[in-house]
């Protein structure tokens, strides 16, 4: 029983990280039907910004987290402005290939400047590296922090999308960009904002992972990026609650497979589940013929 609970905690913290990345995927897809493959690399940049904030500028965890979110916001908006906006009316495959190109540029630029070897975050405060024991279940403070920050950021996001004017604009653009433009909504600004929000979440995930696993490298975004994409599709791409559910299911599934002693099949099982879900329910778990996206 203890072991099962311990694994659930492991799965939830893993799922929270996927959720933060998956939200960016799902929002961008919801609004312009683009699978932004560079998103996993924005997460990687976030991890590096956090690293340099802590090592070169001696910031604390919170300051580093905010810095990384800010830098990633700018980066996300810039990528959209330079790489995707000029292709707004091109075939979708052109934008998709561009996204893969941006992803590779980010990875290998970082590798050129900072090398391919792993880096470790500086030692964290006693609280951040501590843990507590509940009836034999070891819970790391960092796991609580990760789950807490993830859930908080998601609630803020949900509020922005559902309750603010900006969110209303996003929902309008996702339904019909042309009609939204005719109604006086600035479509370009709205799309930029979507990239900004998604990238900020990815940046936060990068720092959290850096502190939690203590190991970052320029290619760290590839696998989590793919898994988060799977999570978004699994839950129904374009839907914020779907991305959340998908991410937690995949986090728990991975941990479960490893817990049963099949750690080498972990990634295989995740993608097999994706295929099955898509066969049975092509729009994902929560996907209906709904018009509401974002």
């Amino acid at each position: 029983m203890e072991e099962v609970l311990q694994q659930v905690i492991n799965g939830l913290s893993q799922g929270s990280i996927y959720a933060l990345i998956a939200l960016g995927y799902t929002m961008v897809y919801g609004i312009i039907q683009l699978i932004n493959f560079a998103h996993g690399d924005v997460y990687m940049i976030g991890a590096f910004v956090g690293y340099f904030s802590m090592t070169s500028f001696h910031m604390g965890f919170v300051e580093a987290l905010i810095t990384a979110m800010a830098v990633c916001t700018v980066l996300g908006v810039t990528i959209e402005r330079i790489a995707y906006r000029p292709l707004r009316n091109s075939p979708r495959i052109a934008v998709l290939i561009t996204a893969i190109g941006v992803s590779l540029i980010l990875e290998y630029t970082m590798m050129y400047f900072f090398g391919a070897s792993v880096r470790s975050y500086p030692p964290q405060s006693a609280f951040m590296s501590g843990s507590f024991n509940v009836h034999g279940v070891v819970i790391k403070n960092m796991q609580v922090v990760i789950i807490g920050i993830s859930v908080t950021l998601m609630l803020i996001l949900q509020y922005i999308v559902k309750r603010t004017k900006v969110g209303k604009a996003m929902r309008a653009v996702s339904q019909d960009a042309e009609a939204a433009r005719l109604m006086g909504i600035n479509v370009d600004t709205t799309i930029s904002l979507t990239f900004a929000l998604g990238s900020a979440l990815a940046g936060a995930a990068g720092v959290l992972v850096g502190v939690y696993y203590n190991s970052i490298n320029p290619l760290m975004g590839i696998m989590p990026g793919l898994k988060a994409f799977v999570a978004a599709v699994f839950g129904g791409i374009g839907l914020i609650p779907g991305a959340l559910i998908g991410a937690y299911v995949i986090g728990l599934l991975e941990t479960g497979v490893a817990a049963l002693g099949y750690s080498l099949f972990r990634d295989g099982v995740v993608f097999a589940v994706l295929i099955i879900v898509l066969i049975v329910k092509p729009t994902g778990l929560l996907g209906k013929n709904t018009k509401e996206k974002v």
Binding site: E2, E3, Q6, Q7, N10, G11, S13, Q14, V209, Y213, S215, L219, M220, M223, E254, T255, G256, A258, A259, G261, S263, L264
Partner: peptide, 20 residues
């Protein structure tokens, strides 16, 4: 016997298994 592949960063699941 537990296994991982180079590049993995999350080992909590296999270690929790080993712990028992």
């Amino acid at each position: 016997t537990e296994a991982y592949v180079a590049g993995d960063t999350d080992f909590n699941a296999i270690l929790t298994r080993i712990r028992s």
